[in-house]
Structures are given as C-alpha cells and as structure tokens.
C-alpha cells in the first residue's frame, strides 16, 4: 500500500518537473527570439541552460526507477552542463565584446557608440578587427 502511494507521488512529482522544465525551455527560446540585441539574448539562453535543463533532468531521474547507473549518468550530464554552460556563454560574450559589438544600454535601449571601460590596450584579436572582423559589429 505504502509503495503504491510512493509510486504515485513520484509520478506526479516528475510530471510537475517535466511541465515546469518544458515551460522554462520554451521561455528561454522565446527570449532568444524576442529580446532586442545580442547581449540581452544571452540572458535568455541562460534560462534554458540552467533551470530548464535541470528541471527536465530531475524529472528523468525520478523516472529512472532507481536504476542507479542511469541516475549517475543523468547527474554527470547535469554537473557537466552546470560547468560548461557559463564558460561557453562567457566566451561568446567576451568574443562579441572584444570584436567590437556595442550593447544597448539604459531604459530607452540607446546604442552606446563607445562602450564604457573598454580596454583598448590589450586583447590580441582587437588588432585583427581592422582586416575584416566587422560583420559582427555593424548590424
């Protein structure tokens, strides 16, 4: 009797986790489409990477039926996503920043022509922007 109750609890909990995870995955994708410029879209893709993926993976863990090899694999995927998604987000953002893409700033979303605190002296790829790096920055 007890086991049956537990089973239905796990079932409904994973149902909820799948629903919430799907919601956040869609939210991230929609933000990627709706937000006005590259730097704001970056935040939207973070929603999918963190909460959306984690909730769906937790739902799968509850559905794994106690098969601990599956649970270990899912946990490794989750841990790996947690470590790599900020690194790749940061490196895309840094590449855009060094490549001369200026963010929209302030409430009225004005294009700042020269971004604040940009370090002109360092960064090797900056020197390259003279010969054909501009397709990213001008549009």
């Amino acid at each position: 009797m007890m086991g049956e109750r537990m089973d239905s609890f796990i079932h409904y909990a994973s149902l909820f986790l799948f629903a919430a995870g799907s919601f956040f995955v869609i939210t991230g994708a929609l933000g990627l489409l709706r937000f006005p410029d590259f730097y704001t879209r970056m935040h939207a893709s973070g929603v999918t990477d963190t909460l959306g993926a984690d909730l769906i993976l937790w739902g799968m863990i509850l559905q794994a039926d106690g098969d601990w090899l599956l649970i270990a694999k899912l946990l490794i995927i989750m841990l790996f996503l947690m470590f790599t998604s900020p690194v790749s987000t940061h490196s895309i953002a840094h590449a855009a920043w060094v490549g001369g893409l200026n963010p929209l700033l302030g409430k009225d979303l004005k294009h700042s022509d020269i971004a604040p605190d940009r370090d002109e002296t360092k960064s090797a790829p900056e020197a390259q922007s003279a010969d054909g790096q501009h397709e990213g920055g001008t549009e």
Binding site: Y39, H43, A44, G46, H90, A93, W97, D119
Partner: peptide
C-alpha cells in the same frame, strides 16, 4: 562563472581585479 550562471547577469570581461558585468 557563478555570476554568469545566474540568469540576468553575464560576466563579459575580466580586467585584472575587476569583472565587467552585463
């Protein structure tokens, strides 16, 4: 990475001691 992992803040550049955040 913690700053980047929380949605809404992304670390863009690391200038010596400072972190530049969008």
């Amino acid at each position: 990475n913690s700053i980047t992992l929380t949605p809404g803040t992304v670390s863009v550049d690391l200038l010596g001691e400072d972190i530049l955040i969008h």
